[in-house]
Design a protein around this nucleic acid. Sequence first.
DNA 1: TATAGTCATAGAGGATTATCTATGGTGTAA
DNA 2: TTACACCATAGATAATCCTCTATGACTATA
Lengths: 320, 320
Amino acid sequence: MKVRQLTFRLLQVYADVVRTGSITATANRLHLTQPTVSQQLKRLREIVGEPIVRQEEGRVVPTEVGQALYQLSQDLLSRTDVFSQYLDEYNRGGRGHFSIGLVNTAQYVLPRLLGPFSQANPQVDVTVEIGNRQQMLNRFERHEDDLYVFSHPPSDDAVMAAPFLSNPLVVVGPENNRWANITDLTMEALKDERFLLREPGSATRHTFDAWLYSAGIELRSTQQIASNEAIRLAVASGMGLAVLSRHVVADSPKGVQELPLKGFPLKSRWHFVVRRERRLPPAAYRFLSFVQGLLALEFNEPEGELAVAELLRTLDIERR
Amino acid sequence: MKVRQLTFRLLQVYADVVRTGSITATANRLHLTQPTVSQQLKRLREIVGEPIVRQEEGRVVPTEVGQALYQLSQDLLSRTDVFSQYLDEYNRGGRGHFSIGLVNTAQYVLPRLLGPFSQANPQVDVTVEIGNRQQMLNRFERHEDDLYVFSHPPSDDAVMAAPFLSNPLVVVGPENNRWANITDLTMEALKDERFLLREPGSATRHTFDAWLYSAGIELRSTQQIASNEAIRLAVASGMGLAVLSRHVVADSPKGVQELPLKGFPLKSRWHFVVRRERRLPPAAYRFLSFVQGLLALEFNEPEGELAVAELLRTLDIERR
DNA sequence: TATAGTCATAGAGGATTATCTATGGTGTAA
DNA sequence: TTACACCATAGATAATCCTCTATGACTATA
């Protein structure tokens, strides 16, 4: 058999001829003329190298080889059809895969978005990468993920960022600490305390440092700890105070307490970050749409919703 | 996806590109130039409507959709390959189906040919049709079978016949009959006996009648019985004498005995009969070849072997 | 035995495909 | 940085495919 010349069109036509038992009928059904169909059959016969149909009592019936060919056709066509459906579903974003890179802090809140999304789109496979800011920047540079969540988007022309969710930074101390009920508590009063901080690259640290600088305050004692969780535990055990995302505290508040510090919480936002030139997988696009809805309904973040809507609009324009 | 334009060639090329991870390598392997392969990929991409490969670290790797497409390709190609193998096997006659129509008498000897053939070709499916001469002639007229076995081939220009096996006709009586040991027994001595005969259309009857006519003998008493088996039983029970194929007697000799009649056995032969215009299924062709071998080795029928060889040669010329 | 329906074949047009060579861009590795 | 390997694109050509109309042959039915 000359497989090289075999076309799906030929198989389609052939299968229909076998089904209808009539060349003319197939011609009508497929909006072709009868000679066209005859010729297609002839060509298919040449490709197969064997008669595939014969006439019997005015009907066109497949020969033995023809029957096997018909089965093959059905098989191949239906498999192709399944693939085609997969494609459609993929394009609708209801199926497929995307990966999202999170900076550490975001891992406390993203599950609240990813969870419902996965539930609503079980066929979508999401890979979540987590790391500190520097690690995420490296991944970003290497184009390793489809989507990122940063507090401070990398400054890059190729970047599009949508601030979608507020990330309030609060100062926390151990439970029942002595500042908890003070009104008008200011940073001045705390500047001699020991502060447990994330590494300088991190967004939380960066925001806090900037605030301190603008407030003209210099801390006396700081200690650097690499993980939010470790910081929380250290604070709980009385090693000092810390600045953390309120989401971190809300997620597992055991042993720590937010201080009613004036000027706090510091405002900061998480951003969805995508590369301008990257073609976003439809599933990721669908995720963003999904998040957009959630922000309005569940998170009360109208600004975030707008930002994501804007991002989606831009992506939509740049799609193909 | 534009299934209509999809070609197996495209899938072959694509699958190879995925396997090698290189367009140039595929071009060499398939004896094409690199731009040709590039263009095929491009076209496939257009058919699918989605990027299917991207470059990564100098290699060509499939996208998510590309991976699904690759799986599809492998699937479709291997299935097509199975069909192709089936075709080859079919053409070699080692697989497939044919039907053979036998007149009643032949059913006693054909199993000795069909049995070994089926054993040697388990994938070949043989339909055996059995009937009296008239029934077989009807089937023959309606082109219902691929191959026939007659004693007297139908006289038809479209017919090819090969006398392949002798069918000696003998006169039988009950066991221990009074003629069994007579030397120089002639028909004259038996003409007053009652003869149990097949219907006039049958070849056995026809041959016997012709012989009687040429010998100038007229029988006194005859009785018509429709089945060889019934005749044998009737003879055994002393109802009369009969003319039967020696194969019938040999097959189940109980209660009957051949008479040493002068001029007997009457010579007659079975013929393979095929229609000139009918394209013989390869399996039937293979059966004839097989029989040709058997005739020489097992049946000591050199003339039969020659006749079948001649038939095969003619069929071979008329093939396609 | 007309007649209508079905299929095959021939011939022809335009569209598409399968290739090639030539060339330019891009990224990898020396 | 240069050289090389690899891929994309452009342009050209021959083959092939797709589809049509016109026509003839065959067959079953009225």
